[in-house]
Amino acid sequence: MKKKLINDPENVVVEMIEGIVKAKPSKLRKLDNYNVVVRKDAPLDKVALVSGGGSGHEPAHAGYVGEGMLDAAVAGDVFTSPTPDAIFEAIKTVNGGKGVLLIVKNYTGDVMNFEMAEDMAVAEGIEVAHVVVNDDVAVEDSLYTTGRRGVAGTIFVHKIAGAKAAAGAELSEVKKAAEKVISNVRTKGMALYPCRVPSAEEPTFKLEEDEMELGIGIHGEPGTQRTKVKKADEIVDDLLGSILSDINFENGDEVALMVNGMGGTPLMELFIANRRAHQVLENRGIKVYKNFVDEFMTSLEMAGMSITLLKLDQELKELLDAPTDINLMK
């Protein structure tokens, strides 16, 4: 995919943010000089939630700014973590005095930039905490590595921490709820076709017409494994297989199931995959409490999908069901 519906690769992020804010003018605004989207009514008398990361993951992250979810989203350049000054600006804007929780995906760049911003905010006396989402089972987790990436499971962190904050919880409780999601959410992704960053000439990887990547991230990185293309059902079996062998699921467990398109995948294909996911979970005696099928955390026009399972308990179910003005499903 060489052609893009853009004006200038240099301006994609700012023009996109302007388009996002125009779409919900009564609810969102953009901070001057920063690619930061905040709730128009911020700061509110509650713990504020700030998320963000590189751009190219739309609707993440600005699409989750709203009642019951985020208070601000900080957009970096395409696939590039935002800088500390922008994050700091977001923190200052949404802090209503009850503190700010930063939701960070586990990438070296994201973690470092958000931590620098946190230091800056703390130095100004703002109460700040952060959680690091690392739901991608494709990547090996070890003390000696960067650890797992944060991918689509982040949406559940937004939703649940957002509901907790909306309910009036303290920063430490909101953080605890976010961490509960993080320890119970797992994702694995795959791609049939790569994506191309607007300012680059070539896609980040190339695949033959009979090849696919398993274990991809959300930045156009190649996956952990390249295989021949398989049928949708086999692919779902692989993704869910990795997830189910990573975290302990028992007969009767309830889960939220997310089938996430990577940006270029038609909904038709996501629903075909969703059908299989239900079959697999049914066979394992796992109950789908809530099912999300759409694009949630994308990678530009990459064709592929990720599957996420969040293991639920009573508290998580209630928070997942709590109202939000963000639409979470087609």
Partner: peptide, 12 residues
């Protein structure tokens, strides 16, 4: 650099 590079290399 901190406020324009982003990514991992910016803070580093």
């Amino acid at each position: 650099l901190i406020s324009t590079v982003g990514g991992a290399s910016g803070p580093l």
